[in-house]
Design a protein around this nucleic acid. Structure first.
Lengths: 342, 342
DNA sequence: ATTAATTTTGGAAACGTTTCGATAAACCGG
DNA sequence: CCGGTTTATCGAAACGTTTCCAAAATTAAT
């Protein structure tokens, strides 16, 4: 193995070998139609013989871009985020962009650090799933953002594009479905009011009861976090209540994992002992014997849309006010719900 | 919102405002102990007042690095890869590196493109999970790599560090476990012989039978791909055999998903109708009622080790021959296996 | 107080590319 | 074959930083 200590060829080497100026080599690469065929041939030959590849660092420097975009989320082990990343990546890659993946582990400090570093010449734009929409530091940071961004499923008082999910109608539909099956003691476990999914899901849940003329089971609403641990904790508590709920809506795919963990630990059976509705198409939801009835949303479309919004801004052709696009959910019936007392 | 059309401050601006030279500003940032406290104070004040942050592109250009590492895999929706990414990211981030995540979707062309682009000034190193160890183009490409790399669970005739899993002993143990439960018609579904996990798992499987003095059920070995689709196809076929296997080892976490899909579709029950062993700790394996007995491996440790090997190379302090470190597996007993005829 | 040794600073070159204005070459119609 | 136009090429400046060398300032030693 020859560990080539010889430095990689530069554009000057190509110019020297092919007997033209560096400017011409550059144009041969970036605007081949402005250079005569004969010259182009010589340059191309030199490039091939030297194995020349332009140095991206120098290009980034001179062009003042990086062809890189940051994707900031709390946890890539969340399969929904992984799918979303893939969709964004597919679109961006087609246009020559690479993606930084930055996991914040739900920590505000890491989130801030990620955003800060991305905008100082490390990325041309970013796709963000912020941890807390109401944190004033985050709001300030985003207000002063110098590169385009797109928010994923977050709603902030800012002039930033956002791709959202219509969580409220989704929850309304799911809750009504359970109500029609005769359930009344329905529990909801979901994110806190500091992020849009939390607020909207609670809203839809409440509305479903109100429209049915039923009392809202306020004491069964657990709105705090999207984590599996939160789902586990709350489900465990709910299952141990003397008058325990007959159904649980685990509104968040990680929450569902936590709820299933609690169900497994307590030896409860779905749907015999309790009805269950989850969120987002995932291996566990679809393969769990039943399978689990779930509120789905078009993750690929959401990701692609986010990427397209970002690309519009990146190409500079979009000097429009911020746009927010919302996608509807769909209730996919599995076998995890059963009529009450049926 | 003030869309600052004013260009971001440069190091020259800082120099001007603080009344020193650019060199001194640079040293104030990178080697503060070589500049006098008084000067340092003025410079820092100017930096703060201008909100100056060094432009990474210029730093990359001049320093000839990027503080970026590529993580190349076929699919980030594979939860094992996601966990591994997180572990690598955690270690690298601590040292100031960011990670590109490049999904190749299993396509050789995308893999080649990813490697090519990474080494031409876009990254300082890479962590690779190659799709096919035997592809001559890939081998050639890696032989000529100009940046350090670490292979994940791949074994190639190259002078490149690698972090491996001891798949053979793992499979031997799992297979023996099933044999001791009385199983004889045991099927194995796993990767093809073009990657180490495939070869090693088949080897361990075969050895278990041989050591027990039993005939190896060659006709039940399906060694071709790690995909869920392959798992689904083969499991479907296996379950429809007239003399169908009494146990299946789904050696690969995506394969397990495919196998469970087949099991769901065929209305077969685990472990009553068939015993099942999976691979890698995952939501689906651990929460599937039973749960599923699995061959686990220490993903965090594997990821951290890969990151550390890479860091050694990146810091230039390691001019040693390539190292390969292998981690053992562990059989985690669930409830997805049952004595035959028991 | 003077000089030598040391520390701190200024100024400029360099990194590899793109781009711009200016020059040179090719083309064209008469 | 010649002026006029268009098209190609050259050469140099620029992007924002780091780093080197020499010069200046400070400190130490006598």
């Amino acid at each position: 193995m020859k560990k080539g200590a010889d430095k990689p060829a530069t554009i000057r080497d190509v110019a020297r070998v092919s007997g033209v100026s560096v400017g011409t080599v550059s144009r041969s690469l970036n605007a081949p139609d402005t250079v005569r065929p004969g010259t182009l041939g010589k340059v191309r030959a030199a490039i091939r013989s030297l194995g020349f590849q332009p140095d991206s660092r120098a290009q980034n420097m001179r062009r003042r871009n990086t062809m890189t975009v940051g994707f900031v989320i709390d946890d890539i082990a969340n399969p929904w985020h992984a799918s979303c990343f893939k969709a964004v990546d597919a679109v961006m890659r087609e246009r020559g962009f690479s993606l930084y993946l930055m996991s914040t582990n739900g920590r505000a400090s890491e989130e801030a650090a990620a955003i800060d570093m991305l905008q100082h010449g490390r990325a041309d734009g970013m796709v963000l799933t912020i941890n807390n929409e109401q944190d004033p530091h985050t709001i300030k940071r985003l207000k002063e953002l110098r590169v385009p961004a797109v928010l994923l499923d977050r709603d902030m008082p800012l002039d930033i594009d956002a791709v959202l999910t219509e969580h409220a109608p989704g929850l309304r539909q799911a809750t009504r479905y359970l109500i029609e099956l005769g359930h009344r003691r329905i529990a909801l476990i979901t994110a806190g009011p500091d992020i849009r999914p939390g607020r909207e899901r609670v809203r839809g849940f409440v509305e479903a009861f109100q429209k049915s003329g039923l009392d809202v089971p306020e004491h069964l609403i657990r709105s705090q976090s999207l984590s599996a641990d939160f789902g586990f904790r709350e489900a465990t508590a709910l299952l141990q209540m003397p008058d325990r709920p007959t159904a649980i809506i685990a509104a968040g795919n990680r929450i569902l994992v936590g709820v299933l963990r609690a169900i497994q630990q307590q030896g409860v059976s779905v749907p015999d002992d309790i009805s269950l509705i989850g969120c987002d198409r995932s291996d566990i939801a679809m393969l769990y014997p039943g399978p689990i009835t779930l509120i789905d949303r078009p993750v690929e479309e959401i990701g692609r849309t986010a990427a397209q919004l970002l690309l519009e801004r990146l190409s500079g052709q979009a000097d429009r006010p911020a746009q927010r696009i919302a996608f509807p959910t769909q209730l996919i019936l599995g076998g995890s719900c059963r009529p009450v007392g049926g």
